[in-house]
């Protein structure tokens, strides 16, 4: 019962948000409303991507740069389900538009998440035995292989792109995805699994010596992270209504990495802040579109040199405020929170 309250509150809040957004932005008085609405949705999708990648890259310390691959798997599988299986699903549901659309979206998203999770397991199982740089390159390679495969599958449009996807996602569903990813990642991080993952990040051999099943945990984190990338993919597909393999190059993966690096690796609030910043800032600076990527890249390098823990990492002004407000005091477990803050800092 106690758990049901926050869930219901979240659902009610999101429904209210959707209603407000429709009233104000879509049908409302604000002139560029639909444009703001679109940015909101994109920001939400990026938050899901960043938060999920943060679980592998930040918490578990396994550097994956193939997140766009799982994003693509989720997007294409989900889109296929709603395009090819949509009528069948609609057939077994009562003919109320809201119920029908929700049913199709839930089915498609579940399929996308499942497919991405399976892909994550297939990639993670063998490659997580590798460390550091090799893992990075394998995940990068995997992402590219996925893209090349999609290019060659005609049923999903190949190089022409996948069209005719129904627009089923809205702010409510994206918000729900964000809430779910935040809740799951936060709960994992604070559970004994999360502490084990932090231990793996600090020192794999020591973690193993403490009896942690290193490979299994790493793969689990990887699969969860991939599944949420799949959710993000499904939401993206049902919002953009068009998919093209070029959306899912490793540049997209790098973008997600930049989000969590800017926000602060391993920090949940940092991932959210990084994703929102990197979605909104480029829109604000449309006029400087040519310099945008130059500024990104420069910012990334400078931050890594002068402030490797990111915006919300340990010791920073913002970090301290967020920590005060968000972190429940953990009695006598200072050691773990401390190791969580060590990310990116000098290590031997």
């Amino acid at each position: 019962m106690k758990r049901l309250v926050p869930i219901l509150a979240t659902l009610a809040g999101l429904a209210l948000l959707q209603w407000a957004a429709t009233a104000l932005l879509l049908d409302g008085p604000i002139r560029q409303g639909p444009y703001y609405y679109q940015i909101l949705l994109l920001a939400g999708i990026n938050v899901i991507l960043a938060v999920s990648l943060n679980l592998t890259n930040g918490v578990a310390g396994q550097f994956s740069i193939g997140h766009a691959g799982f994003f693509a798997v989720g997007a294409y599988v989900a889109a296929s389900v709603s395009v090819y299986g949509g009528p069948a699903i609609a057939g077994i549901l009562p003919n109320i538009p809201l119920v029908r659309d929700s049913g199709i979206l839930i089915a498609a998203t579940s399929a996308g998440a499942l497919a991405a999770a399976i892909a994550g397991w297939l990639v993670g199982m063998p490659s997580l035995r590798l460390r550091g740089d090799y893992l990075a390159i394998v995940t990068l390679g995997f992402g590219e292989i996925i893209r090349v495969l999609i290019l060659n599958i005609d049923a999903v449009g190949g190089a022409r792109g996948f069209t005719g996807i129904p627009r089923l996602a809205n702010l409510f569903w994206v918000g729900l995805g964000v809430a779910a990813s935040l809740a799951v990642v936060r709960n994992i991080t604070r559970s004994s699994h999360g502490r084990a993952l932090l231990a793996i990040r600090s020192d794999e051999i020591a973690a193993q010596a403490m009896g942690i099943n290193v490979t299994r945990l790493k793969v689990t984190a990887f699969v969860v992270s991939a599944a949420f990338a799949g959710v993000a993919g499904s939401l993206f597909a049902h919002f953009a209504m068009f998919l093209h393999p070029n959306t899912f190059t490793f540049v997209k993966s790098f973008e997600i990495v930049i989000m969590i690096a800017l926000g602060g690796l391993g920090s949940l609030a940092g991932a959210v802040l990084g994703a929102v910043t990197l979605t909104v800032l480029p829109e604000l600076f449309r006029g400087f579109a040519d310099y945008r990527m130059v500024i990104y890249a420069l910012a990334l390098i400078l931050i890594m040199i002068y402030r490797p823990q990111g915006m919300l990492g340990a010791g920073g002004f913002l970090g301290r405020i967020v920590r005060m407000r968000w972190k429940k005091p953990v009695a006598k477990k200072g050691a773990e929170t401390k190791s969580a803050d060590n990310i990116g800092g000098p290590s031997a």
Binding site: I301, M304, I305, P346
Partner: peptide, 16 residues
């Protein structure tokens, strides 16, 4: 710095 930091810097230099 940590390997992750270096890797991210390398990605940044490439993008730049």
């Amino acid at each position: 710095a940590s390997r992750l930091t270096i890797l991210i810097v390398a990605i940044g230099v490439s993008l730049l």
